[in-house]
Amino acid sequence: MSGVNLEGQLERDAFGGPVLILRTADGSYQLQGEVPSKLVGLRVRVKGAEAPAQFGFGMVGPIIDVSHIEPCD
């Protein structure tokens, strides 16, 4: 479980359930953990780690357990 620092656009989609997606220049990530809904639609910075269970129905990219998230200035 390696730590990651990411920056991108936060979106919410409904791939069989609400899925939080971070779209970065390198690709898409699925975020899980405490993510305030007010950040959806904004550009955000994320600190976290790859989740131990990487399989699911989201299938948008690596699943990240979020430890900190904040809006970009």
Partner: peptide, 14 residues
Amino acid sequence: KVLSAHGGGSSDRI
């Protein structure tokens, strides 16, 4: 049932 209530699962169990 291979995915949890949060929707996650592991390759070995699947």
